[in-house]
Design a protein around this nucleic acid. Structure first.
Lengths: 261, 261
DNA sequence: ACAAAAGTGTTTTAACTACACCCATGG
DNA sequence: CCATGGGTGTAGTTAAAACACTTTTGT
């Protein structure tokens, strides 16, 4: 881009390597408690540095694709996933974050639904882990995951993001469970329900889920706009949906509602 | 970083150029109304492409410096500014955003205080503009500025960000004027004052501003943590979109605390 | 009939808005 | 003593939290 007056020596101007990585979150039901928990897929590094360690899926940026497209492609190639929700997280560019070379990573984060997560090919070199109990990862990926978790929780608190963990139809209790899993605390069912029903982009259907040994709950669907993945906004790579936190005026979703011991 | 299984051809793997740019905001008092307004400095491009057009200050990333350091250095070299508040905004990487070559720009945004802004050397090729009345800029810089404005307003709504526009000591009315300038609407002085006094990181001093033809207002100071500029945390250098300020959580990597206007 | 979760109503409490009013200074 | 903004008080309104209660299913 050649800006005026940049007086660094020519040797230093060699562009550092640029890579894309993605933190992918999905909910998995714990067989015992039945409650959903946060999981994410990692890939095992098959070369130096950090050979053998687990790392975030990622890869290089090809010249013909936008950042978002590149993130989606790398994701698909390494894990077989094609998430609906994919958003830029942060650009990490510390000097010493990769051993030998200078490396800048633009990190995306994604939410996938349980059925999608099933499709993810698990193998010797791709495995799912619980988000809150990761071992030491390659590079600075632990920090990146921590940051993604922090961002997820914050966005959850006032965003319309929880639905991206769920399928087309869902019960209000499922939404509550998503919140409880991500925020890590119990919420009052009654108040939570009231909040959701006041939200503009959740519509009731006339279907009910059968099978539980209790009164069948009504199914709802999300009518809001998903973050576009890939196609539309490729022009600048950041357009249609201004990246983070579209929510200044948006849907009030439940925040605190502690249940009593 | 060489991730596994990236099946794109070798020709496409050539790293695209990487640049840093910064959107700098400062408040300037309108001589007529006396009210502060948002301004930002731009630099005139002195080579192709977009020769002669106004653009965001920026430049390349040197191999020895973090992203944050590079942003600060470019800023200093092009405009003479050394802002206290400097945070990553977004990485823009659309395929066609620069004419000839592929270019990824990691954009930062900064807030500077009036006295700092005075120091900015203004010249033939560096000039300040009102943020809401910019002509067509080089590249996709109009979009970037719009996004920065949107983010500023959002963060303002519940952040502890306003003080970075002001000096060491300020009156509560000054803070209110900052909010009014950025949000574009009037606020109730009485209620605003109550909110600020309830904020944890604003402390009263025993000084008063003299000289107005009215009761001298008390001076306050900001005791919260500024976003470090180029400091230790620049290693991974993550600063983020804030939470609903109640979430007392701070991110795994730096950010500033919150308040409730 | 009973357990269990869906769903509704109601009281309490905190937060925010609007606006009236007093205070201290320069002219 | 008057104009001007600094600063305080307070009633009315709105949203949120807590929790008792009713409804509908499966077994």
């Amino acid at each position: 881009m050649a800006y005026p007056s940049a007086n660094v020596s020519e040797r230093e101007l060699q562009s550092p390597s640029l890579a894309l990585s993605t933190v992918i979150f999905a909910l998995r039901h714990d067989p015992q408690s039945g409650r959903p928990e946060l999981w994410l897929p990692l890939v095992r590094r098959i070369r130096q540095p950090h050979h053998g360690k687990w790392a975030l899926p990622g890869g290089p940026l090809a010249s013909h694709e936008s950042l978002q497209d590149a993130a989606a492609r790398n994701l698909s190639e390494t894990t077989g996933l094609d998430p609906r929700y994919l958003e830029q997280l942060y650009a990490f560019g510390g000097v010493d974050r990769a051993a030998a070379q200078r490396l800048v990573s633009i990190v995306y984060w994604a939410l996938v639904q349980p059925d999608e997560a099933q499709l993810a090919r698990e193998s010797e070199n791709v495995r799912w882990f619980r988000a809150d109990s990761l071992g030491p990862l390659a590079f600075d990926h632990n920090e990146i995951v921590d940051y993604a978790l922090w961002r997820l929780r914050n966005k959850m608190a006032y965003g319309s993001i929880a639905y991206h963990f769920l399928g087309e139809r869902f019960t209000l209790a499922q939404v509550r469970e998503v919140y409880e899993a991500v925020l890590g605390r119990a919420l009052d069912p009654a108040n939570f329900r009231r909040h959701l029903r006041a939200a503009p982009d959740i519509a009731a259907t006339d279907e009910f889920r059968q099978g539980g040994r209790h009164r069948p709950p009504r199914l709802y669907r999300y009518t809001g706009t998903s973050t576009p993945v890939g196609g539309a906004s490729a022009a600048t790579g950041a357009t249609a949906t201004p990246p983070p936190d579209t929510a200044a005026s948006s849907p009030p979703v439940p925040v605190n509602a502690g249940r009593n011991p």
